[in-house]
Amino acid sequence: MPATRDDLMGFFKDLEIEVTTVDHAPVFTVAESGDLHDRIPGGHTKNLFIKDKKGRLFLIVALHDAEIDLKKVHQIVGGQGRVSFGNAELLMEVLGVEPGSVTPFSLINDREALRVTPVFDAAMMQHEILNYHPLKNDATTAITGGDLIKFAKACGHDPQVLAVSEEAKAAGL
């Protein structure tokens, strides 16, 4: 069974990570979340669940408006050949979330198999506060960048902070 929001919040508490969560109507795309950016301070984000030609899985997390060249991103993240999006079944199997609810917090569901390589865009990590869904797209949870890294490591992952967005590359991050 995938972790629930309560499981996630308990995990944060055990790690002594302080978060704040705002409930809202479900949002399925970055475009639908526009009004939340005005109500919830911090960097708003998007998450790309991708796989390479060899079946390696990556979760790329970047700012909501970041430009990411999917034809070249494999060269940055260490993938083999061009990448494609993982389908809904694979997403549920590996990260325990549905499309529209993808979040780095879903790494809580990949603590044993460690099938996903998390990649956090360097431009995103420049923000003090970052916002993600707490496993479902009907709420937004704010966390510091440092605590996001702490969370990922507590899930057994060693997140890569790389310049995957055009904005990060342009800034020399």
Rank of each mutant, 00 (worst) to 15 (best):
M1I: 05
M1T: 08
P2M: 00
A3P: 03
T4P: 12
M9Q: 05
M9C: 08
F11S: 07
F11A: 08
F12L: 08
K13C: 10
I17P: 03
I17M: 06
V19S: 06
V19I: 15
T21I: 15
V22N: 01
D23P: 07
A25T: 09
P26E: 02
V27D: 05
V27S: 05
V27K: 08
V30Y: 15
S33W: 10
G34Y: 04
D35R: 06
D38S: 07
R39Q: 15
I40V: 15
I40M: 08
P41Q: 06
K46V: 12
N47C: 03
F49S: 02
I50N: 04
D52L: 03
K53F: 13
K53I: 03
K53M: 11
K54D: 15
R56S: 14
L57S: 11
L57C: 04
L59Q: 07
L59S: 04
L63K: 11
L63I: 00
D65C: 00
A66R: 00
E67M: 04
I68F: 10
I68R: 00
I68L: 07
K71N: 15
K71Q: 12
K72W: 06
K72A: 07
K72C: 02
V73C: 10
H74F: 14
Q75D: 08
I76M: 08
I76D: 14
V77M: 05
G78I: 01
G78H: 03
Q80F: 06
G81P: 10
G81K: 09
R82T: 06
R82G: 14
N87M: 01
N87S: 04
E89H: 12
L90T: 14
L90I: 11
L91P: 09
M92Q: 14
V94L: 10
V97C: 14
V97G: 12
S101M: 02
V102L: 05
F105R: 10
F105A: 02
S106E: 14
I108N: 12
N109D: 14
N109A: 01
R111W: 08
E112S: 13
L114S: 02
R115I: 02
V116M: 12
V116H: 13
T117V: 13
P118Y: 11
V119R: 06
V119H: 09
V119F: 09
M125W: 00
E128Y: 04
E128C: 01
E128R: 13
I129Y: 11
I129Q: 11
Y132C: 07
Y132L: 12
Y132H: 15
P134G: 00
L135N: 13
D138R: 02
D138S: 13
T141Q: 05
T141A: 14
A142I: 00
I143L: 06
G145S: 04
G146A: 06
I149H: 00
I149W: 01
F151L: 11
K153A: 06
G156P: 02
D158F: 01
D158R: 03
D158K: 11
Q160A: 11
V161D: 00
V161I: 14
L162Q: 02
E167C: 00
E167S: 13
A170K: 13
